[in-house]
Design a protein around this nucleic acid. Structure first.
Lengths: 213, 213
DNA sequence: CCGCCGACTGACTGTCCAGTCAGTCAGATT
DNA sequence: AATCTGACTGACTGGACAGTCAGTCGGCGG
């Protein structure tokens, strides 16, 4: 077994232990036991307990960041949004242990770490908000406070993933994607749908469908 | 200073310390220092560190539970929903320290405790889901998976409160209530609004208000 | 004034655990 | 065969902290 492999093994072990016990209750002894290695070995690969944890979370963040693409308003918007959702779902569900870790992680632990988590979510929200602003100009996003939409969306996503990782992942993946998309759509996306009744903007009057039966 | 007062003082001190440092980083020594009391005194009022924490969270839960009333579908639904939202907002914003505590709390800490938190949220979601089901029968809630609406709503609420307690509570209270209500309404409530274009349900045709100006 | 009571104190103890380091050993090198 | 190398080991240490308890103190009743 070469160095890289051993390192990975330790990372995996750490991830599992952190995910099941949480950061504090996870002892370095647990991690090395799971990796079937002596304690000293751990310290050959990582300077301390904290840094393994940071490395794990950083990895997840960067994979998540990579999964989210800026929506090109020229192309098929629905497809792109779904693609983004699918990417996020894939990253998170492929590694439930890490997802658990990320979602259930408390600030207050460590100011520096809390700041990192927060800034990640801020980044996501900003990205989302900018897209929504753009969408509003194009008339495919409903009027309203886009930064609140962003917060709302992120919160909803978090909660949904919390549920699906908590209770042994009952929902099939593609269905989750579909449901999430419909949620955004129902919630505030206005793609291929008439604008709603009391809206201040649209100059285009809606056609009224007469009851025909 | 009598016993009850001292106890309260300790609780308050504990709440503040827990909220700023998180459970683990909060030392009993910090709590007693903040309460200007010796360590031994703490143990005259509480059996251990954990139980103060539990007491704090239980208190918040029960106040939250008390703030939420079942919606009576006979009366003014909008007013009742707003009243509920207002109640939740009041409980949470009246004690930002505790709210911080509740929102930023990680499972994995302690299985028993995680279970308690989860079951609280489950209760809220169930209550919400039942109301939404009822709402669907009455035609004031859009079609769709109500348990997902519930999850979505709870997640969004959590996130919004996380934001408003994290960054020194920028939003005025009544505005928050208003925004939250509009969010539910836009998201899936259908009170006093036309059903949306592609909807299968409503037999009752809406009165159409002609532009009169 | 004395003795008692109960609230309060804070130095102390026992435990737990992250991190260390002197030492082992299997192979590569000469 | 002798030496070296570096991955690995695990008993140990040092510090941090939850919880304890023998002792202080102020006030009250006799």
């Amino acid at each position: 077994m070469d160095k890289a492999e051993r390192r990975l093994e330790l990372l995996r072990a750490a991830r599992d232990v952190f995910a099941t016990k949480g950061y504090h209750a996870a002892k370095v002894d647990d991690i090395v036991a799971r990796a079937s290695v002596a304690k000293g070995t751990f310290y050959l690969y990582f300077p301390d307990k904290r840094s393994v944890f940071v490395e794990l979370v950083d990895g997840l963040f960067s994979r998540l960041g990579g999964a989210i693409l800026t929506v090109d308003t020229q192309g098929d918007i629905e497809a792109q949004i779904k693609h983004n959702i699918r990417g996020i779902v894939a990253v998170l569900l492929d590694d439930p242990a890490l997802t658990q870790l990320l979602l259930s992680f408390a600030p207050g632990l460590d100011p520096a770490f809390a700041a990192k988590i927060r800034s990640f979510y801020d980044g996501v929200k900003t990205l989302l908000r900018v897209s929504l602003d753009e969408g509003q100009r194009l008339g495919i996003v409903a009027d309203g406070d886009t930064s609140m939409y962003a917060t709302f969306t992120v919160g909803a996503l978090k909660e949904i993933f919390t549920e699906s990782t908590d209770r042994g992942q009952a929902w099939p993946r593609e269905q989750l994607v579909e449901q999430l998309f419909r949620l955004l759509q129902r919630g505030y996306l206005r793609i291929d749908r008439a604008p709603e009744a009391p809206v201040s903007v649209p100059p285009k009057p809606r056609k009224i469908r007469k009851k025909t039966a």
